[in-house]
Design a protein around this nucleic acid. Structure first.
Lengths: 210, 210
DNA sequence: TAAATAGTGTCTCTAAGACATTATCGC
DNA sequence: GCGATAATGTCTTAGAGACACTATTTA
């Protein structure tokens, strides 16, 4: 999720190991409830935020003998992008759930190998931000080009050319301009939204790696 | 593996369900032997072929209630590229192990959802062939540009421009020319090999999608 | 010499980078 | 008017596509 900066949803552990530390949300697959692990991951998200993620995909499996002091473990990790409109955390869980700024993760003690998992997810998201329109899924349902530019720059941690972004927006055909403009500190900015039933566009070139 | 055409290593099932059908090799993780699932997958490969794959990575996890008649199951799928020099199947397993032409998979009854898994792997390999030097790992340790071109075209099932490939080979700096040329039906072809300790190069553009 | 494949030269084309220019806004 | 942000215009640049042309081999 993006609001000023990229954020990740963490929960506080209530039992050993790593009691009291923050970790990524997740629990065991419930074969009674979940037809597959995708459904299981989505169920986890909905238990915390009531958000239906606009973007959701499997990251990768993490496994090993050293990642949990209790022994060998395997985690199937998914990541999702959700709109800042949907950040509300379920009241029942407010105490132990928190949106954590990605830049703050660095200096935090995180349970298990979850700091490494977050880094991997971020790296994958950075790559995809360079060659796809995926960053639009971090935004509210109405947004300006300037906000999209800020989202991409937050993800890749580098500035991009506004002109290049506008060319991509036009080429993608994913967005439609609304009959509305919005204040932005200077000239009014055109509002856009996702066209309905549009598919995520992937480009054949990446933006510059610097 | 590539020899004339892309091939995938299959084993014949010796027990129900799907007894007698071909499937992808794989077995349960052995916590005694495997520090993580990567090692487990490599152990599986070595049990069949004695090859050390030049390229090896996790594809994704497949899971669900319907993919195995015995109930809910999860498979962590890896794929590897190995040189045609290493295709020898361990003698102990010759009966039940086979390199199957990818184009022949279509009309074959494959166990479980493994046909779908193969399709997913192929699709991922196709994408990577368009923006990376990964196809070099399908080849023997000495090869010509023409062979590399054939490998890429076998993977993506489309012709590419020889000139574009040469530009990429030069830009990548991954290969070195040997003091040797080889017959090819016309003018002798320059032999290349991977430089030692070279890293796989990824490009910022994909070759055309057609 | 012809056919085949290897390798080069070079023009075009596309889309990103860079950055100037114009258009609006609030103050 | 001034500073700030939005939007456009346009020249440059990198690298792929296309394809002609040359080089070298075998038949």
């Amino acid at each position: 999720m993006l609001q000023d900066s990229l954020k990740v949803l963490l929960v506080k552990r209530t039992s050993a190991p790593f009691k009291g530390r923050w970790e990524l949300p997740g629990e065991c697959v419930d074969i009674e409830l979940d037809d597959n692990t995708d459904m299981s991951a989505l169920r986890n998200i909905k238990a915390l935020t009531a958000a239906t993620p606009q973007f959701f995909e499997q990251l990768q499996a993490f496994s090993g003998i050293n990642r949990d002091p209790r022994g060998f473990s395997v985690s199937l990790v998914y990541y999702a992008l959700i709109s800042p409109q949907c950040i509300a955390v379920k009241p029942s869980a407010v105490e132990e759930v928190k949106w954590m700024d990605l830049s703050a993760i660095q200096d935090l003690a995180i349970a298990f190998d979850h700091k490494q998992i977050i880094a991997t997810a971020r790296s994958q998201l950075q790559q995809k931000a360079l060659y796809s329109m995926i960053p639009v899924y971090c935004l509210a349902d109405q947004f300006t080009i300037g906000q999209l530019k800020a989202a991409i720059e937050a993800i890749i941690a580098k500035p991009i050319q506004r002109k290049s972004l506008i060319r991509r927006v036009e080429a993608s055909g994913m967005l439609e301009a609304l009959d509305e403009k919005v204040k932005s500190g200077g000239r009014l900015a055109q509002l856009y939204r996702l066209k309905s039933d549009t598919e995520t566009v992937y480009f054949e070139r990446s933006l510059s790696f610097g």
